[in-house]
Amino acid sequence: MFSKKRDWLPKKFILRLTLLNTIVVTTFILVTGWAIYNTACFLVEGMVMEVERQDQFKSTLFEYLLLVSLFAVVVGSVLHFYLTNKLIGPLKELIKSTQKMKEGFYPDPIQIHASDEMAQLIDHFNQLVEQLKVNEQQRQRIVSDLSHEFRTPLSNLNGYLNALKNGVIEGDPKLYQSLLNESKRITKLVEQMAQLKQWDVESGQLLSQKEHINIAILLEQSAEMFRWLWNKEGIRCDIQADSQHVHVNIGGISQVISNLVDNAIRYYKGKNPVTIKGESLNQVYKVSITGEGQPIPQAEQEKIFDRFHRVDNSRSRDLGGSGLGLAISKEIIERHNGKIGLISDGSNHTFWFTVPIKD
């Protein structure tokens, strides 16, 4: 019913337009016919001709003009309706597309076969729809990223607080400082959530604030945040980090380290310790996290940093993974002009990344 109603709207407009044009054309034809008729009658009256023949001439001329006028009005109106209907076809597509958007769907691009003003309007409409789709994808992407980033620090806080409550572990200044850092990180994420509409994913605004920090300390603090989880899973952790100051976004690099450590614990399968190593090379600082886990096929290694990609979908869902952590890490590292990658040898996997030592 609604579809027929929408289809009827352009036709009503065309009919009104045709009716208006018919009235104008009919008026013009009638005036012209009246002028021709009276002029011809005036000329005939000036000729030497019988009255009967003059009357016959006037009658024939009147009938002829009347038929021609009616024919011109009918043919002109039909032709006008057909051409206008054809010309206004893109407008009908535009109406359908806007109605589809009103119902919450993104319409397919409208095809353009001309270069007039109507084509320009449709082209602008197509661009608008495409921009709206991109904006929606970016919004969903940001919300999904932030939701993923909330999970790790909240899990750590809950785990430590439960352990402290039950007397499983005893608190110390180092642990409290780590918990405070995680709390601040969550607060920062909440602030970013509140400013969601002002974000621009592609501009790199999330990493615009950089500070000088000893990355070795950052590695130790990030690993310490997982101490409770290391103990719970019975995994040993060895840290070997060269002392080196770098100019980075501390929150962003902390997220990368946390994501990689979290993956190493979450997918750990073996007996050897997880090794966290930091090396000062020529112009970059390289961080590598090595641990044992399930084999990763070569084809999967090339896609592992893609957004929402999981090596084992069913297993990842059971463990709470969303396939975002490594994609987010890659994005952060690339915005630091660094590199990130994976070296896999059977069940031994090394996730590494580099950041420039000098900004």
Rank of each mutant, 00 (worst) to 15 (best):
N282M: 13
V274K: 03
R335S: 04
E63I: 11
S316H: 12
K86C: 00
T350M: 04
I88N: 05
D312A: 06
S322A: 12
M225Y: 03
N38I: 11
G46H: 12
E45R: 11
I265L: 15
G46N: 09
H349F: 03
L196F: 10
K210A: 02
E211C: 09
S97Y: 00
E331T: 15
T152R: 03
M1Y: 10
Q240G: 00
E103K: 15
L79W: 09
D306Q: 14
V74W: 07
L326I: 12
K100T: 08
E117D: 04
G204F: 03
E211V: 09
M193W: 02
S59Y: 01
D345C: 03
D262A: 04
E136Q: 08
S288L: 03
Q177G: 11
G104Y: 02
E334Y: 04
I169L: 15
I29M: 11
L87C: 11
L94R: 07
W228D: 14
S288W: 04
Y268N: 13
D7F: 01
L219T: 01
L324Y: 05
A35H: 05
K339R: 08
I29V: 13
D145A: 05
A40K: 04
P356Q: 00
F125E: 02
T84M: 10
L19N: 01
R266C: 04
V75N: 09
N21F: 07
G291I: 02
N158D: 04
I357Q: 02
W8C: 05
Q111I: 02
N259S: 15
P173S: 04
H124T: 07
Q298S: 09
S178L: 00
L132D: 05
P173R: 02
G278H: 01
S183A: 14
W34E: 06
Y268E: 06
V143P: 08
E130P: 00
G159Y: 13
K358S: 12
